[in-house]
């Protein structure tokens, strides 16, 4: 088992390495030169100098910034290694991702790491609720659909879920906003708290206020994930219910509840668990569309605004973060698969 896990981790690191190279290449396709921009911004301070001196000063500043950002060499491989933190800058120091230098945001004038903290907290806050809610609804729903397969309720759910996963998120959000905010005017259409946070001094009142603003995004998120997950649970449950052991259990005269929840559900759990794990990792990444639509200051919205404002250092870190999350998800799924289903280990 350990060997298997080590192997998976090895794969993951290799994939991460390749993806980071791809990311770096794409990032470098953007026609921008930070050192040049900064030097240009700084040279304004020297506008009293005569032209020639100013040009010299500019060259000097430009070079200084290039050294600072590690772009004073044209060799892209060296630049990549510097970015990762494996090759020293011209001043002999290592200052890359591995050393914790994640870049600098021009939009906020802060280190990227500081920017990500708040959105991360918000995203997690929302997604924990959304995930729990969605799982709490979809798993019982999927099971009951599978048990009552072919009945009216199941058929209705099939239609509802197919609608659920056929509609784009933003469309579902629009319809819900229209329903709750335009037609009935009972929920706020966007934002995270009442403007100005009037209850900031009262913790519980403030929390209540935040929850009030969260209701609609939560409903939308849950609804969006309903379709796919319910169908998935239903399918694996049907598979499990058609197993021989279920027939045996029924033949033994076990109660239907015991058959369904104890025997069948255990077997259906294997594929479901992997999906659930993937979901929990989604807690950190957030939904771009929903966060953007509801003006929630989360990870997805941060990526959106950074792309809009061309704040590429933030984008870059976000992207690496997303990749890492998805790789970790794969890794955990693989390991769990290996744990619950020994055939997988042997096969590899």
């Amino acid at each position: 088992m350990l060997k298997y896990i080590l192997k998976r981790i090895g794969y993951m690191l290799a994939v991460l390495l390749i993806l980071s190279i791809i990311m770096f290449v794409i990032y470098n396709l953007v026609p921008s030169d930070r050192a040049y921009t900064d030097a240009k911004a700084e040279i304004i301070r020297y506008k009293n100098l005569p032209q020639e001196e100013r040009d010299n000063k500019f060259e000097e500043l430009y070079h200084e910034y290039q050294v600072l950002y590690g772009t004073d060499v044209d060799n892209k491989i060296v630049r990549y290694l510097r970015w990762v933190g494996l090759a020293p800058y011209s001043n002999g120091k290592l200052n890359g991702l591995l050393q914790g230098n994640f870049g600098y945001s021009y939009q906020y004038n802060k280190d990227v790491v500081d920017i990500i903290k708040d959105p991360m907290r918000n995203t997690m806050f929302i997604n924990v609720f959304a995930t729990l809610l969605a799982l709490g609804i979809t798993i019982p729903l999927g099971i009951s659909c599978a048990v009552k397969r072919g009945k009216f309720g199941d058929k209705t759910m099939q239609v509802v879920t197919i609608i659920g996963y056929s509609l784009p998120t933003f469309l579902i959000a629009i319809v819900f906003i229209w329903f709750f905010c335009s037609l009935f005017k009972i929920l706020p259409p966007s934002g995270m708290t009442t403007p100005g946070r009037p209850y900031a001094d009262n913790y519980w009142r403030d929390l209540l206020d935040r929850m009030y603003y969260l209701i609609l995004p939560l409903i939308v998120m849950t609804f969006c994930s309903l379709g796919g997950m319910t169908r998935y649970v239903r399918a694996s449950m049907i598979e499990a219910l058609s197993m021989d052991c279920i027939k045996t259990a029924r033949a033994k005269g076990l109660r239907e509840k015991v058959v369904v929840y104890s025997h069948a559900w255990r077997n259906a759990l294997i594929p479901v668990v992997t999906l659930v794990v993937g979901w929990f990792l989604g807690i950190f990444s957030g939904s771009i569309v929903i966060e953007q639509m509801f003006a929630i200051n989360g990870m997805g919205n941060l990526l959106y605004t950074s792309l809009r404002t061309q704040d590429y250092d933030v984008v870059m870190l976000m992207q690496m973060f997303y990749v890492l999350m998805s790789l970790l998800g794969n890794l955990i799924i693989d390991i769990i698969y290996g744990l619950v289903d020994p055939r997988v280990r042997v096969n590899k």
């Binding site: 794969y11 390749i18 993806l19 771009i288 792309l307 997303y322």
Partner: peptide, 15 residues
């Protein structure tokens, strides 16, 4: 695996 690991929407947006 590499391609599957790429988060779809963010990556498409960045590109």
């Amino acid at each position: 695996e590499i391609f599957a690991a790429i988060p779809f929407l963010p990556f498409a947006m960045i590109l």
